[in-house]
Amino acid sequence: MTRKLVGQVTPEEKNEIQALFERRNGLNELAKVLTPDNTELYEKLVTDMGTTGTKFQNWWDTMAQKYRWESSPNGNWEINFDTCEIFLVDQ
């Protein structure tokens, strides 16, 4: 695995993705607790997972377009929440 610094986002942009990241983790862990018989909350959860997932992906798409980060076929981008740096991680 290799890890290469390919860019940086603003603190405000970092805050956006950090909140989405936290929310996605929260929803995933809530999903282990909620069962479909709790109809109202379960539906709210499923909807939110969809919405949050979309927002999460949109952020990466928008930022990639804005900053034109280097990419690779087998790689993923990662963000360091402490420094706002973007890394390309190749498997």
Partner: peptide
């Protein structure tokens, strides 16, 4: 913890995004 997660989510509490 299960109750906290459920209630923070149900109430749309701002802490659900950061706990």
């Amino acid at each position: 913890c299960d109750y906290l997660k459920t209630e923070m989510f149900r109430l749309n509490h701002h802490w659900f995004n950061s706990y």
